[in-house]
Each structure stands twice: as C-alpha cells, then as structure tokens.
Design a protein around this nucleic acid. Structure first.
Length: 275
DNA sequence: ATCTGTGTTCGTTA
DNA sequence: ATAACGAACACAGA
C-alpha cells in the first residue's frame, strides 16, 4: 500500500529520527529481505552514518557515509520504526540497525515482500528496477505532452499502464482509481484511445492528487503508518477506492468494483465510460 | 477448514 | 518490444 505519498511521508518522518546517527551493527533476522549476501550487508553498513534519506518513485534511498546507498522498497506492508534497544522486538521485525546512541532502526514487514539492497551511491540508477522508472509526478519533471505521446503508443488498459511505473512513478492501486475517477476515464480504456485533452487533464490530476495525499500524510487503508506509528488521513478524501455500492460523489450512481489486470478496481459506471 | 482477497514488483511465457 | 500472468508471503474474514 505504500504508494508515493506514503513513501514520502515515511521518508520525511524517518529523516528527522535517524539522520546523523551512526550504525554500529546490523541484525538480519530474515535474510531474504536482503538482496545479496547478508553478512556482507552487515559488514558494509556497520560503522557508517546515515547522512540523508532520498526517494525515487516508491523506493527509499538511505545515504550512508562514504558513498554507500541502501535502496529499500516497502512493497505492501514494509514499515520502519525507531525504538530504544530495550523495547522488545515485534514478531515481524526482520532487520535491525543498531545505532551508537542505544536506539535502533527496525524494519517490520508482515508479508516479507520488502527488499533492501546496497549499491555505491549514484549507481542505484543502474539497477534495472530503477532504470525503467518514468518521471517523478511534479510539474518540473512530468511533461504533459510527452505523457500523451507515450500513452498513445500503448495498447493496454490505462489503469494497468499507470501502475507499471514507466509512464510516471508513484501511483498504486488506490490513487490510480482516484485519478481516473477525477478525470472521468474508465479504467479499462485502452491507452491509445485516450484523447490529448483527457491525457492533459489526467496529467494534472496525477500531480495534484499525489500532492494532496502527501499533504495529508498519506492514506491509511489496512495498515499504513509512518515512522512514528502515525496514520495518514487521506482516506477521508477518497472518492471511489473501497466505496463499492456507495453513491458517486458527483452523480450518486453506485460505485462498482471490477477486476482489471488482476487488481480490484473501483469506478463510477456513469461518469467513467469506456471509449 | 479451506478459500479468497489484499498490493507491488519481478521473472517467465507468449 | 510489449503484454499477460503467476510467484513471492501472511493473515483476516467468510
């Protein structure tokens, strides 16, 4: 569930808690979270200080001293927290970074889907998963015309295309349903059938929606919380996600739920028609 | 008790 | 190249 707004919320909260802290040791409780050799991971990170936390798409980039970067993806339920070492570990804590001040950065993930990988700072761009990423959804980096042209060349359903992170990064299953509702586009519309006019509005709505969600500290559906265990509040601003059977806020037609590309998909059958 | 739904990315297949 | 689909996992709820 962490989509871009949730990852950004985590990044901001966590930055305040761990920047300038020095790691003196790492406990890897569930090794599969680490991409590569876990012992090498521990060895590499130990002794280094966290200088910054950046973000690219839904990936967190922990910057360690001396040009080491940890690329971290939370997938569905990954969470970070900072606790005193005396506080007992949670059942689903898989990696623990011990700081020299007696606190710990803990990685918790019920589903165990999240991954962490070390690379030399700057080289993260070369990882296949980051290399394929489209632009960040900001006015400076996300070009409306280029978006329309790229959409035009695709044949699959617009929802599926928006989820694959190549046209633009950051949308997941919740926000994609929301922006398509706002733009009055049916989620199964083939990309190539989207008009230039629609593409431009969709572009603007993607930027605005993600900005609004960040301002609300993300959406807490199911289990998302930030590094301080705080929930986001954007779920109060959702129009269609999780609203099956409830009236569309625009036209009162009951919201429908279907499956598109194996994903639960919410839309208004009156406002959003296939073209 | 077994089955389904939950979401992101990756690897395999067409 | 592009698209489609199962796998990786755990758990709540029917």
């Amino acid at each position: 569930m962490p989509e871009l707004p949730e990852v950004e919320t985590v990044r901001r909260g966590l930055s305040a808690l761990v920047i300038d802290k020095k790691v003196i040791g790492v406990d890897v409780i569930y090794p599969k979270i680490i991409v590569g050799d876990p012992s090498e991971f521990k060895e590499q990170v130990s002794g280094r200080t966290i200088s910054a936390i950046d973000r690219r798409g839904k990936y967190l980039l922990f910057r360690f001293s001396a040009d080491l970067t940890m690329v971290s993806h939370l997938r569905m339920e990954g969470k970070y927290s900072v606790k005193d070492a005396a506080v007992p570990l949670d059942k689903h804590t898989h990696v623990v970074f011990n700081f020299d001040d007696g606190t710990q950065l803990r990685y918790n993930d019920v589903r165990k889907f999240g991954r962490m990988q070390l690379v030399e700072t700057g080289m993260e761009k070369m990882l296949p998963s980051l290399q394929k990423l489209g632009p960040e959804p900001t006015p400076e980096t996300f070009d409306a015309q280029a978006f329309y042209q790229a959409l035009h060349r695709r044949k699959k359903a617009v929802k599926t295309a928006l989820l694959d992170q190549t046209l633009v990064v950051g949308l997941g299953n919740i926000y994609v349903d929301e922006v398509l509702w706002q733009t009055k586009i049916h989620p199964e519309t083939k990309c190539a059938n989207i008009t230039e006019q629609q593409a431009l509005v969709l572009h603007d709505n993607i930027i605005l929606e993600l900005e609004r969600a960040i301002a609300a500290h993300g959406t807490t559906v199911f289990t998302f919380t930030d590094a301080n265990s705080h929930s986001g509040s954007f779920q109060n601003q959702l129009n269609v996600y999780g609203k099956k059977g409830e009236p569309c806020p625009r036209c009162q037609t009951p919201i429908q739920k279907i499956v598109v590309g194996q994903r639960g998909t919410h839309f208004c059958p009156h406002c959003q028609q296939v073209i």
